[in-house]
C-alpha cells in the first residue's frame, strides 16, 4: 500500500503532460492511437462514399430530371454488361496502359542507365531538373499546348514536318493518328518519372558489390542479373506499379487534347464515365460503372502486390 501511494506521489509531481504520456506509453492502445487519423480519413472519405456509391448503383437516379431515385435492382449492371461503348473503352484503356507504361518503362530504364554515371556532369542538378520538368507541369497546360503544337495550320510539329516535305497531318483529328499522338504526349510527360525511379533503383544497389564486380571484370549481363536486378527490382516494380495506376486513371490530359475523340478513338473508361456522370448526370448508372472500376482496381493491385511480395520475400 505504501509503495503504491509513494508512486502516486511521485507521479503527482510530474507535469500534467508527462502524466498523460505515461498513460499513453504503457497502454496497448498506443499503436491504435497512431492509426486513428488514417482510419478516420479512410472511413469518412472512402468507406462511407464507397458504400453510398454501391447503394446508388442499384437505383435509377438522374440529377437533371429531379425525379426521386427509383430502385431498379441490377438493371444498371445488365445495361453496362450489354453496352458496347463501355467494353470498347475498357479495351482501349488496357491498350493505353500497356502502351504508355511499356514504352515509358523501357525508355526510362535505358535513359536512366545513360544517366547513371553522371555524377561528374557539369550542371548535373540543372540538367536533371530540366529532364524532370515534363512531369511537373499541369496536364491541363500540357494538353492545351500540345493541341497547339499538333495543330495542322499553326502547329510547330507540322511546320517541322513540312521542312522535310511531309504533307500536313491533322494529328488529333485523324482517326488513325489521334491515339498514337496522345500516347506520345503521355510518354513525353511520364518517361522522366521512370528515369527518376530507375535512378533510385540503381542507387539502391550497394556500391561495394559493383566495385567488386568491376575488379572481377564480370561481364555486363552477369552484373545485371546477379547484382543490379536483385537489389533494384523492388523499387523498379513499385515505380511500374505507380505508373500503371496513374496511366489507368489518365483523364485531364486526354480531355484537354481530344475530349475522347475523334469518334471515340481516344475515349478511355475514365473519360466515358466522366461524361456519363457530369455531363449526362446519370448518377445511378455511373455509380455502377464506378463500382466495377473499383473492383478492377482492387484486382490489379492484388496481382501487383503479390508480385511485389514475392520479390521482397526473395530478397530477405
Amino acid at each position: 500500500m505504501e509503495n503504491v501511494s509513494a508512486l502516486q506521489r511521485t507521479a503527482g509531481k510530474k507535469p500534467w503532460h508527462k502524466k498523460l504520456m505515461d498513460g499513453f506509453d504503457n497502454s496497448n492502445l498506443f499503436p491504435y492511437c497512431l492509426i486513428i487519423p488514417v482510419l478516420l480519413f479512410f472511413i469518412i472519405w472512402n468507406l462511407i462514399p464507397t458504400l453510398w456509391m454501391i447503394g446508388m448503383s442499384f437505383y435509377n437516379y438522374a440529377f437533371t430530371t429531379g425525379a426521386p431515385e427509383k430502385f431498379n435492382g441490377i438493371s444498371n449492371l445488365i445495361d453496362i454488361m450489354n453496352n458496347d461503348t463501355v467494353w470498347g473503352n475498357l479495351g482501349r484503356t488496357f491498350t493505353w496502359v500497356l502502351a504508355t507504361t511499356g514504352i515509358e518503362t523501357v525508355l526510362g530504364i535505358l535513359l536512366a542507365f545513360l544517366f547513371w554515371n553522371s555524377a561528374k556532369l557539369p550542371g548535373r542538378r540543372l540538367a536533371l531538373t530540366l529532364l524532370f520538368t515534363p512531369m511537373l507541369i499541369a496536364p491541363a497546360s500540357v494538353g492545351a499546348f500540345f493541341k497547339l503544337l499538333y495543330e495542322p495550320d499553326f502547329g510547330v510539329i507540322n511546320y517541322l514536318l513540312s521542312l522535310f516535305g511531309i504533307a500536313k497531318i491533322n494529328f488529333l483529328g485523324d482517326l488513325k493518328w489521334a491515339f498514337p499522338a496522345v500516347t506520345l504526349v503521355d510518354v513525353w510527360m511520364w518517361t522522366p518519372f521512370m528515369i527518376l525511379i530507375t535512378l533510385a533503383a540503381l542507387g539502391s544497389v550497394p556500391k561495394a558489390e559493383l566495385e567488386a564486380a568491376e575488379i572481377d571484370r564480370l561481364p555486363w549481363t552477369k552484373r545485371l542479373v546477379h547484382i543490379i536486378w536483385p537489389y533494384g527490382k523492388f523499387v523498379l516494380m513499385l515505380g511500374i506499379l505507380l505508373r500503371t495506376i496513374d496511366s489507368f486513371k489518365t483523364m485531364d490530359l486526354i480531355f484537354m487534347l481530344t475530349r475522347g475523340g475523334p469518334g471515340n478513338t481516344t475515349e478511355l473508361v475514365a473519360i466515358g464515365l466522366y461524361r456519363k456522370a457530369f455531363e449526362g448526370f446519370t448518377m445511378g448508372w455511373s455509380s455502377t460503372l464506378a463500382v466495377i472500376l473499383l473492383f478492377i482496381a482492387i484486382a490489379f493491385t492484388s496481382v501487383y502486390l503479390y508480385i511485389l511480395n514475392l520479390s521482397n520475400a526473395e530478397k530477405e
Binding site: L39, V269, S286, S287, A297
Partner: peptide, 24 residues
C-alpha cells in the same frame, strides 16, 4: 489489409472516386 486498401483507392479513376464524394 490497410496498406492494400490504401493502394487500391489510389488506383480508382478520379471520375469514379469523385462521384460518391460529390454526392456526399
Amino acid at each position: 489489409l490497410i496498406m492494400f486498401f490504401l493502394l487500391s483507392i489510389r488506383m480508382v479513376p478520379a471520375a469514379a472516386s469523385v462521384i460518391p464524394v460529390f454526392l456526399m
